[in-house]
Amino acid sequence: MELAAKSVAEIQVGIADYKIARNPCRLITLGLGSCVGVSLYDPVTKVGGLLHVMLPDSTQFNNVSKPAKFADLGIPLLIKEMRAMGVNTGRLQAKLVGGAQMFSGLDDKLTLNIGQRNTEKSREILKRLGIPILAEEVGGNRGRTMILDTQTGDVLIRTLGNKMKVV
């Protein structure tokens, strides 16, 4: 293992979960399929947050046990927590990754394209909150791993069989 220059702490963000970290740290969420990873970053304080959204809209469900599962609740929740850490929300910059359609076949019920709806809902919520989206790597049919580097605000995207992409 190379430890020398790379001993930056890495925090894993689970499915339907979010994490916030101060620099230096890397927030990582593994295997986004139809789920969307939403990163928020304040370039001044270098505080970053990463949210792993599974579903677009909580209002379609009766009991919501995990707000972070939904774009409409998770994004405001992440922002609130970041504000509590002293982040000026006017400086936040967002990046979106994921929202793919993983399965091929003819079953309509499984091709409802939740990925696309997750992406659209996330855009809508961010727009309503006045947070600019600096980059997107969404759609398609590939699974993605998303890493937010709090040193730079860069988002690294890993897909199988390809080189790491930075946005």
Partner: peptide, 16 residues
């Protein structure tokens, strides 16, 4: 059918 990252495949399936 899907052929990709395990996490992406299973999670998407369960969401759908």
């Amino acid at each position: 059918f899907a052929y990709d990252m395990l996490g992406a495949v299973l999670t998407s399936l369960m969401v759908a």
